[in-house]
Simulated assay, not measured.
Amino acid sequence: MDDAAPTSPRLHRRFPELVESLPHVRLGDVPTPLRKLEGLGTRNRAWLKDDSTFGSGGWGGNKVRKLEWIIPDVLAHKSKQIITVGGIGTNWGLAAALYAKQFGIETAIALVDQPVDDHVRAQLARLQRSGATLHFTHTKLRTVAAAPYLMLRHVRGGRLPYYLPAGGSSPIGALGYVEAGLELAAQVEAGEIPEPAYVVAAVGSGGTVAGLLLGLRLAGLRTGVVAVVVNDTLPLGPKDLRDLARRTETLLRRRGAKLGDIDLDSMELTVTRDYLGPGYGYTTAEGRAAQRVGEEFGIPLDPVYTAKTFAGLLEVEATSRGGDRPIVMLDSFGPRTD
């Protein structure tokens, strides 16, 4: 074991050669809690990894884990502005705007239409209060067409803005869930939970699942990943997710990490579109039912991501193999009081 401070990221403690080459800022408290959802499901083996608690600012959840690695990279590039994309109810865009502002970084967001409900209206109002510059580009095609103009418009100090894909799902962003995979392994080692059979997570832009694949592999766990697709506007099949995990592995190696051999192809990955419904942002009957069950267990679920993930958890818990090993849902929804 190295001499890095206990509050430093596990990636730095495991690979101290990354401390200088891959900087990190702490934006939330770790580890996030685990709890067994007693009485849920047919086999009583459902657990929650509660990343809704992660984040010390005005929004929480999985996006903030990504920003712990993204923000230092923005600063290292001497950029003064982030430009990114998302739906008009984007959790990612809100988190980016709020946390980047703490470091003197401006944020601009190209916003694509999605079905509007109370959740989306509330989130759009938060975006409008966040200080971000909002560009309503409406469609994916118009966003792509407007990209050169938007990049030039947001030049600061002679530098182009730092571009981030939807959800912050770059290799740098995926490090947030490499870290979370190592964290889960430490909780297993500490006896907080038996080694899970599966982690069930939403996949909207891919970075969370890709990071988990790599983190669980680095940790040596036999845990598989079930990816519940909630976004039909991006390619999010098994090949896409493994490719992002490999690009994240390549990033770590280029920054100096001595990883040894890693076989990501042998990681069990199931990608399901069974809970997507008509498309991104649309509510589903299964999701609404999951929200009602979630309320009984004290778990607020949003209709776009975690309600559909919870519905997937219930099916995996009932039907999957793995004996009595836990099935863990990653709760990535991080609302905060306005």
Results as ranks from 00 to 15, higher is better:
307 A>H: 11
198 Y>H: 14
42 T>W: 07
188 V>L: 13
257 A>T: 04
39 G>K: 15
20 E>F: 11
209 V>K: 01
164 L>I: 15
326 P>Q: 15
38 E>K: 10
295 E>Y: 08
295 E>G: 13
207 G>K: 09
102 Q>K: 04
298 G>I: 15
285 A>D: 11
235 P>W: 06
222 R>Y: 05
260 G>C: 03
90 T>V: 05
278 P>W: 01
314 L>T: 07
173 G>D: 05
316 V>L: 04
2 D>Y: 08
317 E>M: 14
230 V>Q: 04
61 G>I: 01
113 D>M: 01
8 S>A: 15
223 T>C: 11
62 N>H: 03
298 G>S: 04
207 G>I: 09
241 L>Y: 00
277 G>D: 00
319 T>Q: 05
103 F>C: 02
267 M>R: 12
13 R>C: 08
42 T>R: 13
157 G>M: 11
143 T>H: 08
219 A>Q: 00
196 P>E: 09
155 V>Q: 04
21 S>F: 11
253 R>L: 03
315 E>L: 14
308 K>N: 02
42 T>H: 13
257 A>G: 02
242 R>Q: 15
251 L>H: 10
302 D>M: 11
214 L>V: 00
244 L>C: 09
64 V>C: 01
171 P>A: 06
27 L>I: 10
318 A>F: 04
15 F>C: 02
227 A>Q: 07
317 E>F: 14
338 D>R: 14
316 V>R: 01
231 N>C: 15
237 G>R: 03
210 A>T: 12
29 D>N: 10
97 A>V: 01
258 K>S: 05
56 S>I: 03
322 G>S: 08
64 V>R: 00
270 T>P: 00
153 R>T: 11
49 K>N: 09
337 T>H: 09
296 E>V: 12
208 T>H: 06
285 A>K: 13
156 R>D: 01
90 T>R: 08
21 S>T: 14
159 R>F: 01
113 D>T: 02
267 M>H: 01
242 R>F: 04
298 G>V: 14
329 M>C: 13
169 S>Q: 14
75 L>Y: 06
74 V>W: 09
113 D>Y: 03
44 N>T: 01
30 V>T: 04
90 T>M: 12
118 D>Q: 09
39 G>Y: 13
156 R>W: 07
212 L>A: 08
136 F>H: 13
3 D>L: 15
269 L>E: 05
52 S>R: 04
157 G>E: 13
139 T>G: 12
27 L>D: 03
202 A>T: 10
262 I>P: 02
58 G>T: 06
146 A>K: 04
116 V>D: 02
218 L>F: 12
59 W>G: 02
117 D>L: 05
76 A>Y: 07
4 A>Y: 11
104 G>E: 10
226 V>I: 00
333 F>R: 14
198 Y>N: 08
178 V>A: 09
266 S>T: 03
292 R>E: 13
337 T>I: 05
213 L>V: 09
221 L>T: 02
239 K>H: 11
159 R>N: 12
139 T>E: 10
255 R>L: 10
94 L>E: 05
77 H>N: 14
105 I>C: 00
90 T>P: 06
13 R>Q: 10
195 E>L: 07
215 G>F: 07
97 A>K: 00
24 H>C: 06
41 G>S: 12
27 L>W: 08
